[in-house]
């Protein structure tokens, strides 16, 4: 194992330990309430980046996968009483299937069409959920979450710890993709798809793998959400702000490595948590939109590119 991987492993252990210990150290439940959202966005940004960053295929439909995860886990829990970890697993599997379906339909065409089709996924899924009365339709449904286990002091702390685990697993997955042959192939796809195809890179299969992994992470990020809010309805589950943040966070942090989305999500989500408490949520969206435009226009490599690009590695 290389030194980098050891450091990463140590980091994971520390974060996980903090995730389990913090609820006993900090009394104020608000920290866990806000922290949950920040970690949820770390997961979403990381999941989005597997396809959007590594392969360069922009997915505007992150909210579609997220919402699918939200509704699947709400449905499985209220109807069958499935325990939360299994709900998350089921959401990840369905997210992966959705990703493959979506990719299979659109990936053989240019990236633009893919991006537009992903926008459609959100509308189609939202329309379907709207029309299923078993899922509460437009008025939504209440979800009474599971009793937190003995090792967690309360429901918001429990949700927080669950989200820490999901975020850590997602980041580890993204890092693994990045350093494995999949990541190399995806970078080749982003640099030049035709050249990659000509040199024998199985581009379609790689893109489908990226779609599946990305979809799985995005849906898993939504799975604990019904228990966090105790209520699900289509407009918030498929909210555009999720799709916006999923793109803005990696672009602001940097899309080339797993660190970028994490930095972007921590920064932007924390700012948003403060902004929604202190100023209006409309100005919050305006702020994210303006920051997004500024970064796309003037610093397309993101924050990690502004600071970490001194060593002169090849830009792939």
């Amino acid at each position: 194992m290389r030194k980098n991987s050891l450091v990463f492993l140590a980091g994971i252990v520390i974060v996980l330990a903090l995730g389990f210990l913090m609820p006993w150290l900090l009394r104020n439940p608000f920290y866990f309430f806000a922290g949950y959202v920040v970690l949820q966005y770390v997961t979403i940004a990381t999941g989005w980046n597997i396809l959007g960053g590594y392969a360069g295929y922009i997915n505007f439909g992150a909210a579609g996968f997220f919402g699918a995860g939200v509704y699947l886990s709400a449905f499985l829990f209220t109807s069958f009483g499935l325990p939360l970890p299994l709900c998350i697993l089921a959401a990840a599997i369905v997210g992966a299937i959705l990703g493959v379906l979506m990719g299979y339909l659109t990936l053989r065409i240019q990236g633009v069409y893919f991006a537009i089709a992903t926008l459609g996924l959100v509308v189609v899924l939202e329309t379907i959920v709207h029309n299923i009365s078993g899922l509460g339709g437009a008025s939504g449904m209440a979800v009474y979450g599971p009793r937190p286990p003995a090792w967690s002091p309360g429901p918001s702390q429990y949700n927080f710890t669950v989200m820490v685990v999901i975020a850590v697993v997602s980041v580890a997955l993204a890092r693994w993709v990045e350093i494995s042959w999949i990541g190399r192939g995806l970078r080749a796809v982003r640099a030049s798809e035709d050249a990659a195809e000509c040199s024998g890179v199985p581009t379609l299969r790689l893109k489908l793998v990226a779609c599946a992994l990305s979809g799985a992470v995005l849906a898993a990020a939504g799975a604990p959400y019904p228990f966090y809010t105790s209520f699900v309805e289509p407009v918030t589950a498929f909210s555009l702000i999720i799709g916006l943040n999923a793109i803005a966070m990696p672009l602001i942090g940097g899309t080339r490595t797993w660190v970028g989305p994490v930095i972007g999500a921590l920064l932007l989500a924390s700012v948003q948590q403060i902004a929604t408490v202190t100023i209006s949520s409309e100005l919050n969206i305006l702020f994210v939109g303006a920051v997004l435009i500024a970064f796309v226009a003037f610093a397309p490599g993101g924050i990690s590119d502004l600071f970490g690009r001194k060593k002169g590695r090849a830009r792939l």
Binding site: F60, A115, L240, I285, L286, G289, L292, V296, P300
Partner: peptide, 30 residues
């Protein structure tokens, strides 16, 4: 922003217009 750098990257321009549409929407609603 883009064309001077030798051709716009499709994904960047999509993102730019996405951000732009949000800004317009919020300005209208304000």
């Amino acid at each position: 922003v883009f064309e001077r750098k030798g051709g716009a990257n499709v994904l960047q321009s999509l993102t730019l217009f996405f951000g732009l549409s949000l800004v317009i929407e919020i300005l209208l609603s304000l």
